Lab assay of single mutants.
Amino acid sequence: MAAGGDHGSPDSYRSPLASRYASPEMCFVFSDRYKFRTWRQLWLWLAEAEQTLGLPITDEQIQEMKSNLENIDFKMAAEEEKRLRHDVMAHVHTFGHCCPKAAGIIHLGATSCYVGDNTDLIILRNALDLLLPKLARVISRLADFAKERASLPTLGFTHFQPAQLTTVGKRCCLWIQDLCMDLQNLKRVRDDLRFRGVKGTTGTQASFLQLFEGDDHKVEQLDKMVTEKAGFKRAFIITGQTYTRKVDIEVLSVLASLGASVHKICTDIRLLANLKEMEEPFEKQQIGSSAMPYKRNPMRSERCCSLARHLMTLVMDPLQTASVQWFERTLDDSANRRICLAEAFLTADTILNTLQNISEGLVVYPKVIERRIRQELPFMATENIIMAMVKAGGSRQDCHEKIRVLSQQAASVVKQEGGDNDLIERIQVDAYFSPIHSQLDHLLDPSSFTGRASQQVQRFLEEEVYPLLKPYESVMKVKAELCL
């Protein structure tokens, strides 16, 4: 049975990233139509530049190519590739079939990587351009969430054990800070992308030097003109047959890092959902379990974690691919890159769409948070109580021993009897502590235990987050809708 299948058929496997999760716009960027249309555009740009620099290419040939950029006979191309065992030459023939007058000058002087690699770089750039505003929107939604809850005390956790208090907004800023680093890295790697350009079979530009009869300047002009037509500021000066596969490492490393950030955020949300302090959106008709109707599973956060793990592992592909590119190139890269580049971007696209949807509907339960604080705060307040007693004339050592005994009794009630923490009640009825009984409410005010959390939130948002989001103001209103 021949390899390949009808990918629109229910009898043929289709990647869930495309069929179930990723956005239509990201799927289109990695589609065959987008790819092969870009090949034709690159052939047109090459012909236009070659004509401008004096090669015998007519206006009629150029116009014929322009008129057929979208006229792609995919069936013919597939048949040609089956016959020739070469995808680029299959599309040269297919393009030439609908451009008979231009057929002889299509791909003039070029090698397969002229269309293959340059198209990949265009796709990487455009895919990054799709991700950047999506990530900015996630940051914006979380920034709104953090600002609104900047002063809401909550129990902090280290080692997932109760620690000092923080605020809900401050905790959210930990998430935002990681995503801001990801946004900066995505922008950097996007701006650092260079075009492969017009380089020939081993990167020496020998074929173009021959076409222009040894004119170095025209060869350099050709490279520059096509690079500018493709919208790049610069091209690699040095290439082998391909652009260095280190570029793929750079791009997928940034995406993998984004995956790590999203995994951490969504894990926190899942843990908070278990504590009943916070939940992701839950639709009115949504079913959490087929057997347990009360369940409210954090399905979206779980999906993000599941896909983020996949995204983090994909960076190993370009690392290994770059390491086995012998001399000017081997074909070890080809099949692998067809999979890992598309999957990385479709996965990143999915987790950003999902995280935006989550961040637009996060639900906080202040009463649950308050109750958990009441359970733990008495123990945390013991040092403040000791200091207040010393100020009232008591002995630190005597007070410490009193607190120690009462704390152990209260802990026994919590752990052995399943009761509430009654340390404060014990202190309130103990005559030894009568000098500070009137101060206990103040000493137990949760806001006095959150330090500068709310001020940190305000400063972080104003100095770091809002300036970073400013270039994306025009796209901030787009909502994230999930079908599944």
Rank of each mutant, 00 (worst) to 15 (best):
C340M: 05
D268M: 06
L179V: 13
I373C: 11
T166N: 03
E70V: 12
A431G: 10
I123V: 15
R303S: 04
Y21R: 00
A410S: 12
G361S: 08
I105A: 13
S447G: 13
D216W: 15
R270V: 00
M89R: 01
R14G: 12
D248C: 12
A22E: 05
F460L: 13
I57C: 06
V390R: 03
R309V: 12
L461Q: 14
T227Y: 14
A431D: 14
N357W: 08
E60P: 10
S12V: 14
I424P: 14
A260K: 04
E283I: 15
A90R: 01
D215M: 10
P471D: 14
K367S: 11
L307H: 13
K284W: 12
K170T: 01
Y472E: 15
M278K: 01
S407I: 00
E462A: 10
G214D: 15
P435I: 10
T204Y: 01
E220K: 08
D332Y: 15
V198E: 03
V92L: 08
V254C: 13
D182S: 06
C399A: 12
A78C: 13
E343S: 07
P366I: 02
S306T: 03
I265L: 14
R83V: 10
R196S: 12
M312F: 00
L272P: 00
G8D: 12
H107D: 01
Y294K: 04
P281Q: 10
T52G: 08
G214K: 09
I265W: 14
I238T: 03
F208I: 07
T330H: 01
G200R: 01
I339Y: 14
T382I: 12
A411K: 14
P446V: 06
A47F: 06
G4M: 13
S15P: 13
S395N: 09
A3E: 11
Q456N: 07
R309I: 06
Q458D: 14
K477E: 15
G5M: 11
R20E: 04
R303L: 02
P293C: 07
R14M: 14
L275P: 03
W45I: 13
D422K: 11
A22Y: 15
S434C: 11
P471F: 14
V219P: 02
F36A: 14
E228H: 14
I358E: 01
A308N: 03
F157Q: 05
K101I: 14
V413K: 08
G451M: 00
T450W: 05
L271F: 06
A235I: 11
L152F: 01
C173Y: 02
S407A: 15
T166D: 03
K170S: 04
C266N: 04
C266W: 03
L155S: 04
V254S: 07
L155T: 01
L17C: 13
C180F: 12
Q61W: 04
K66S: 07
Q51T: 08
S301P: 06
E79S: 07
S448G: 13
D216G: 15
I436C: 04
S257I: 03
E481P: 13
F433R: 03
F95M: 08
S67Y: 13
R372F: 06
K402E: 06
Y114Q: 08
R452D: 02
S323D: 01
I351Y: 00
F232S: 03
M380N: 15
M292S: 03
R141Q: 15
S334L: 04
S12Y: 15
I369Q: 05
A381Q: 13
K218E: 05
E464K: 01
T38A: 02
H86L: 01
R245G: 01
A431F: 03
T201L: 04
